[in-house]
Amino acid sequence: MTTDPVVRLEAEEAADPFVISGRTLTSRLLLGTGGAPSLEALERAVVASGTQVVTIALRRVEASTSTGLLEVLDRCGVQLLPNTAGCMTAREAVRTAQLAREAFDTAWVKLEVIADEQTLLPDPIELLDAAEQLVADGFTVLPYTSDDPILARRLADAGCAAVMPLGSPIGSGLGIGNPHNIALIRELVSVPVILDAGIGTASDAALAMELGCDAVLLASAVTRARDPEQMALAMRHGVEAGRLAARAGRIPRRWHALASTSMQGRPDL
């Protein structure tokens, strides 16, 4: 075995890759495009993040910035992940996903079915219904879900390609409210777990990875930061640091102190 830690870790990573629907992704950070102050700022953030997958929404032509946005993302060489943002029923979400597949020629979809505009929390009943319909229609379904481990398991059992539990409500920046549930989800499903929503800063992204998540999806934390490009770089490092820490194995928590310096050989002064 090589003694160069970077080479060794790359080999370990290659042996345990992040794969969605047969595609291996070397970046474990997925980026949303909502909330950026300008297309220039978005492009710099996408590049700095190192991401390979970027979410977009589908909206009426006159209200969109379609051409410029897609040009930027084409230049960045990222895969498009259309979302169903704003949908409140399975019916709407399924149609939106089908329309996005026609528009962007991809069967990948970030499935969002929210209950209301105030909480933006997923409606679990509609979400599972939509997921089942889209899986049957051949989609690679990445559902934005609550941090309920049983719902996550139901979504995985329904054939979703990954599950994407929230850390806290969309855009709140409150971080991971229930780390125990996120770790439990990781235990209960065999598909990738992507922490989606609620990330506020790089330490939140690192925590998600330390809890065992396979990747992190975030938007506002970068696009609404004072310096999106710098925060994108911070998130990239946060995800990498958390991943390394999870693999390295943290020390157990102790109630009392444990000296790292031996008492043996202490001089009698």
């Binding site: 909502g34 909330g35 977009i56 929404a57 209200a63 259309p82």
Partner: peptide, 10 residues
């Protein structure tokens, strides 16, 4: 008719 295109979104 709905004519839909890409827009920025999370």
């Amino acid at each position: 008719i709905e004519l839909l295109a890409a827009a920025a979104g999370g």
